[in-house]
Amino acid sequence: MGKVKIKRKSTLIDMTAMSDVTVLLLTFFMLTSTFLQKEPTIVYTPSSVSEEKVPMNNVVTVLVSSADKSGKLEDPSTVEGKLFISFTGDADSTLSSENIRGMMLDEAVALYNEQHKNAPIALTAAQKAAFRQTNMFGTSFQHLPDLLTMSVTERDKEQGDLTNPNVGIPINDNKNRDGRLNDFQIWLKAIYNVAQRINNEQREDPSLTEEQRANLSNLYTALMRKGQGIAIKADKDTPFTTVQLVFDNLQTMKLNKFSLMTALKSEDEPTQ
């Protein structure tokens, strides 16, 4: 009987095919990805059958924070209803998000100082530059200079801590008591003013044809015509009264057309 020869097989596996696949996948993800924007808090939006997409450009997002879900706080509703605003500009350079933020900030601060002559705020160039780089923020005008002086990490940390009284744009009352607007309303007014100014400038741009001028697509037209300029993002479990306060402020500022962010569901899906 001959000996059974055990062949020594090489354990090398050809990884070339695997590598091909992974590179393909990688290319796909790199090309399709849009990065998640940094938001101070996570909210779970309710779902609707509406198929309209959130516009990529020219949109102001108002985030309404939800009650604490981690269970760490004694009263979870204390962190509810804090407001944050984020500006997204055009895709092109002159009205990019950074430039839009800069314009909004200048306008809002001017409006604020006009109303609060005794306690005006002044921002340095560095603070303004910091604001241009911030995607989402939520604080009072009084605290804004302090917030913008912080480093990015410190700022994120403070904004993420919703128990901090300095976090959230104040929306104390919705009535124009003695003609003074609250901080949220000042921002809304700034948004409207800036949007209108951009629209007027673009309309007078001599390089445009008549047709292009009629079909301008900027923040102003999004706000006024399509109602897509302002998108409200709130948690599904947030009480209606909290959201109503935001609606009411928008109505007071005559921004009656806006959109609500939702997730998608099918018509046949049970809603309850």
């Binding site: 990065f35 609707s48 939702t262």
Partner: peptide, 12 residues
């Protein structure tokens, strides 16, 4: 890091 599904909006 990506958002594949974009949020929808409801006009009001």
């Amino acid at each position: 890091c990506t958002t594949m599904i974009k949020s929808q909006t409801l006009q009001i």
